[in-house]
Design a protein around this nucleic acid. Sequence first.
DNA 1: GTCAACTTTGTTGTAGACAATCCGGCCCGG
DNA 2: CCGGGCCGGATTGTCTACAACAAAGTTGAC
Lengths: 225, 225
Amino acid sequence: MRAVRPKRGEGEAYCYQQLRRAVLEGRLVPGQRLVETELARMLGVGRAAVRTALARLEQEGVVERSPNRGARVRLLTEEEAVEILEARAALECLAARHAALRARPQDVRELRAILREMAACARRGDSLGYSECNGRFHHVLVRASGHATAQRLLDSLWAQMVRYQYRTVLAPGRLPRSLEEHRAIVDAVAAKDPDAAEARMRAHLQAVLTSLREVARRTWPAAAP
Amino acid sequence: MRAVRPKRGEGEAYCYQQLRRAVLEGRLVPGQRLVETELARMLGVGRAAVRTALARLEQEGVVERSPNRGARVRLLTEEEAVEILEARAALECLAARHAALRARPQDVRELRAILREMAACARRGDSLGYSECNGRFHHVLVRASGHATAQRLLDSLWAQMVRYQYRTVLAPGRLPRSLEEHRAIVDAVAAKDPDAAEARMRAHLQAVLTSLREVARRTWPAAAP
DNA sequence: GTCAACTTTGTTGTAGACAATCCGGCCCGG
DNA sequence: CCGGGCCGGATTGTCTACAACAAAGTTGAC
């Protein structure tokens, strides 16, 4: 599972990253118990490092902990997923605006490269690959914005959302439109037009949100406590 | 400093809240070193509890830690303060929209009560009291929105901003206009008009942002590394 | 006098041990 | 058959001790 035992002073950060990745990649599924001793043994570190890492993940919203009862991977209700997507939308609009103002040519090139990859995935019907590109796209765009605060918040929101990400993209017929929306955003950024970038990002995430609500309504016709 | 020693299982949460409050109330100033042993003795808990609390505060952006060198209260540059305010604006607009849709009558009453307090502070020139009310106002509004995700993110942003909050409100001549902006927001919420609520919140925070930039430019004519 | 290497001091990072607490199964009376 | 109390295993919360490390101070040679 691990390559080398982390050096002194890196144990906690190592645990944090490994656990985070494990959740993002679906190796730790929502609801799953996270036993400190077990994780410590797996990662080759002490319980203290695991403990503080879990505390950070809790603060980030990836993990849930209750006193004396340990930690589990947080399980989202549909409402929470919608909320997170709404917050993401608000922040990514901000990021898109800044990206239009501050993106360097190489950022735009990278975005266009990802667009080409997305198009290729779309052609061969590879939804999973498309979803992965989609993640990279948004990540690169936010990074290009140079807005460290938005990036930090969005990273944490993204980490909570992954499980739902796949569903939304799989909504039937949305794939080509999604691709077009992404292209429009890049064009606005390349044209250094902050208003258009923000507006198009808003439109895009609005569509994703609608799609998520649709899929959710279809999946759980009348659930959510 | 403390009332009772926290019971088993509450140590970490207790530390977290106490340290957070200490930073928010200015008893721990930015840049100040946070020595684990010392805090543990002060709070009457073990070092482990302090340690995990510091990890959470780091994740929240309130403190900074570097390996083997301990933690300090995070010190913001002007640019970071602007970024945080921008993120706050994006999220509070979302919250204002939701508040307009979901606020209960008692929430509106509470907001109007705070408005009256603010007006009183403004009349007697009590900037500090006004600033405190301002904080309560935004907190209550966000709570009324029922948007747990936005609330969580905004709480953390707020915790990072406090040191700058006072300055912005002290900008000369802004106090009456600020009051009017708040009143306009409450009116929109009371009228259940989400578009107006969002727009007015945006206008308000835009004004605050401009004011912050102005004050910052005046204070450090050409600083910020 | 200056600079480098060494020592000292204070603090953090980690390991191990132990008690408190929770969860499950179990027994027993109704 | 069912509910309440009791016990055992598992897991967490906390404490103590100690090694690793950083920063400041000290020594000594040039």
